[in-house]
């Protein structure tokens, strides 16, 4: 028995040196700031294809993953269907969103992160988009948003899971807006004085899943908190699911300042 005791002590020494140098895990930070561009456009708007080309150029310049675009057909007559149109892209929710963002002066125009233009007190800019995008990309609020979609092709039911992951605390009212857009829709579009019958429409707003002025986040958004929001919608039969995307963004919610703090986009079908 004495021998066993000695051996036990010896064996335990094999494991006694338990303290070890701590492994250094890199300090993690929230994802890079992304920009939301809400473009007000229309199929009956002769200059709008110029706006679409400008946005594509901006995506090429700043990175497609950094610039998320929602095309809202809410320009009144300029967004109404024209000869040869198969679809009407106008939505009441699109008009509601536009009215909520601010005053519209003409098409094409775009709100970039809903930053107010001090000169004319409207968030909708006509021209000067690149400078505004560049300025917005320099900001960082230490916040990330993750969108995860689960789509059932048989029932066309879409479960949208949005995770809000602040690295820094957010101590003000913020609102989450979730919309569905669709790419690659071939339909008529005016350009100048001619109608392009097979124009490729991108980023077309199809549905606003949340309230149009955003759902107020009541949960605590302290440092490193994780707030999960879930939405379920049924995709219209008229939409091609493989070209649909979910866009979710968080904005300042109280008062006039509606600045978008972060935005994320995910395909409905990966």
């Amino acid at each position: 028995m004495k021998n066993i005791f000695y051996v036990l002590i010896a064996a335990s020494m094999l494991f006694s040196a338990c303290a070890e140098k701590t492994l250094v895990i890199p300090e993690l930070s929230a994802g890079k700031k992304r920009i939301l561009i809400e473009e007000i456009t229309g199929v009956n708007c002769p200059n709008c294809p110029d706006g679409a080309r400008e946005l594509k150029a901006l995506q090429n310049q700043f990175g497609k993953e950094n610039l998320i675009i929602v095309g809202i057909h809410s320009g009144g007559n300029l967004s109404s269907p024209i000869s040869g149109s198969k679809y009407d892209f106008q939505l009441q929710e699109g008009y509601d969103m536009t009215n909520y963002i601010g005053t519209l002066f003409g098409l094409p125009s775009a709100s970039i992160n809903r930053i107010e233009n001090l000169a004319d007190e409207t968030p909708f800019l006509i021209g000067g988009w690149a400078a505004q995008v560049s300025a917005e990309l320099d900001k960082d609020y230490g916040l990330d948003i993750f969108v995860n979609n689960t789509y059932n092709a048989e029932t066309r039911s879409l479960d949208i899971n949005v995770n809000l992951a602040p690295e820094n605390p957010i101590n003000e009212e913020v609102r989450l807006t979730v919309v569905i857009t669709q790419d690659s829709i071939v339909d008529a579009q005016y350009e100048g004085t001619i109608i392009l019958p097979n124009y490729m429409h991108q980023h077309v707003l199809r549905d606003v899943v949340s309230k149009t002025d955003g759902d107020i986040i009541t949960e605590d958004l302290g440092a490193n908190a994780l707030v999960k929001k879930t939405y379920t919608v049924k995709l219209s039969e008229a939409w091609d699911a493989k070209h649909c995307n979910v866009v979710a963004f968080l904005q300042r919610g109280s008062g006039k300042n509606k600045e978008i703090l972060q935005v994320a986009e995910a395909h409905v079908v990966e």
Partner: peptide, 15 residues
């Protein structure tokens, strides 16, 4: 772990 969001960060050790 370096690819995780800060919310998912975790410690690690050799032994």
């Amino acid at each position: 772990i370096a690819t995780y969001a800060p919310q998912d960060s975790t410690g690690a050790q050799y032994n």
